[in-house]
Nucleic acid binder design. Sequence first.
DNA 1: ATCCCGAGGG
DNA 2: CCCTCTGGAT
Length: 210
Amino acid sequence: MDRALSARIFHLLKKHYGVPDPSLRYTGLYELAVSVVLSAQTTDAQVNAATPALFARYPDFARLARARIGDVERIIKSTGFYHNKARNIVALSRAVTQRHGGELPSAREELTALPGIGRKSANVILSIGFGVPALAVDTHVLRIANRLGYVESDDPLRAEEALTSMIPRADWTTAHLVLITHGRALCAARAPRCRECPVRTLCAYARNNP
DNA sequence: ATCCCGAGGG
DNA sequence: CCCTCTGGAT
């Protein structure tokens, strides 16, 4: 992969998809942070279905910090991994209220130190929440980075390094959103629709899938 | 490397 | 039925 090819790919993808809005429904950093933790290994639709009840009952970090785990579990059950996620978002809320005075921190090291937030979630919060350039690599981005030839690795950090070295910093957030959208619309894990793909002529994977 | 763990699609 | 979904902690 070289920068010229990378630029052509993203030009075509942006022309096809536009600049997508984040698909998680949230208002403010509290809801974004909680939604991102809940989004692990589940679809945004599942998260968006559960969060209205959650945020109605616990409207901020301070309220969620005092929640009973069992109550939270019942509300978020449909998102999967609900024992872990319930514990994480309550512990996260306690950490933000106690350690950070109720304000979500904007440094990656402070974010990843919070319960339930690893590098991918921190990058989503940085880029979408704070407007800080970051390229979050989730399952879609990792798969597409491999198919397009940015990397040959199952390590998300490798993919992040490859993508950020090829894509201008100002486009990292857009690249993340475009690749997510592409992964859902056409470049699916199971039955990718290479026929209809705007970058099929630039993709080795598409060429091998007639 | 392994566990967590529900729901939708093919 | 098996695979996949905006991963993280141990």
